[in-house]
């Protein structure tokens, strides 16, 4: 016995029994099969489950749907940072850092790749890498914060969240990321053993110096000053053929002292980041 499709519909009793879940399995299955094809009966079902509890339940689910639709897109970096234990909202703030974007990190890799490739072809192998590697986090810091880089810089200052904390969070992340990448690249250097680690303390020292200077000047200017100084120093050493000294105990100790001094300046003057005192 078949009835032409579309001409037969669920009656009210059946609808109610289905909604109350008191029909048997076979009937219920039939109802469901019919509902897939009949908008009118779907409406009848909806009308029958219009009690406050059901309506509220569906409204709650819809709110969750909307929230997920609106929800900020979580990128890879943000997920990674969150996985490392940083709170979800801090991770969100980090995600906006220009120098933590995938594109930035990719270009970093390129730069490091060139430095390493160049090292394999020449004798002043270590020198080029030693020049470039410490500047990577410096550039990263310059691009992490500040009125020239961060479009929402002013809004950030006017907000309760401590700007110095945001800066610190960003700089540490940038340092870790760039140092990590540089570290991996260093492993690919031809075995001039000393340059594989000699860049680490200079990197830290230069970065902290940039930060210290940023308490007075803009991050970009600070970074430029530090970078220029470093380039001049390394070039001079290359000319005098004394680059190996950078790995020596004296030089490394000097960098250590620089790190301590710069860190002290940052700590003492950190509240300078909370208000801009110049134009």
């Amino acid at each position: 016995m078949t009835t032409a499709p579309g001409t037969w519909h669920l009656d009210q009793t059946l609808v109610r029994r289905y909604v109350d879940a008191v029909t048997d399995a076979v009937t219920a299955a039939s109802v469901e099969s019919h509902l897939l094809r009949c908008a009118g009966c779907r409406q009848a079902i909806a009308d029958e489950s219009a009690d406050p509890a059901s309506v509220a339940r569906r409204a709650l689910i819809w709110e969750d749907v909307v929230d997920r639709l609106d929800a900020p897109r979580v990128g890879i970096i943000e997920r990674l940072v969150h996985r490392l234990g940083i709170g979800a909202h801090d991770a969100r703030l980090l995600a906006a850092t220009p120098s933590l974007q995938v594109s930035w990190l990719a270009s970093l890799l390129l730069v490091l790749g060139f430095a390493v490739a160049a090292a394999h072809g020449r004798d002043e192998a270590g020198a080029l890498f030693l020049l470039a590697a410490p500047l990577i986090p410096v550039a990263g810091v310059a691009a992490a914060y500040g009125p020239d880089i961060d479009p929402a810089h002013e809004l950030g200052i006017a907000a309760p969240y401590r700007t110095s904390r945001l800066l610190l969070l960003r700089c540490v992340s940038v340092l870790v990321a760039s140092a990590g990448l540089a570290g991996c690249a260093a492993l690919a250097l031809p075995a001039a053993g000393w340059s594989q680690a000699a860049w680490l303390l200079p990197a830290l020292g230069l970065t902290l110096t940039t930060l210290a200077l940023s308490t007075r000047l803009s991050p970009v200017v600070s970074a430029a000053a530090v970078a220029l100084t470093w380039v001049l120093v390394v070039v001079k050493l290359v000319q005098l053929d004394r680059t190996a000294e950078l790995a020596g105990a004296t030089a490394q100790a000097m960098f250590l002292a620089l790190i301590v001094a710069a860190a002290a300046v940052v700590v003492v003057r950190h509240d300078q980041f909370d208000t801009r005192s110049a134009v």
């Binding site: 078949t2 037969w8 048997d24 039939s30 109802v31």
Partner: peptide, 16 residues
């Protein structure tokens, strides 16, 4: 089912 099936349900089952 162990309960009674209404006439409507019979029709439905027949249709489906």
């Amino acid at each position: 089912s162990r309960t009674e099936i209404s006439a409507e349900e019979q029709v439905l089952l027949g249709v489906e």
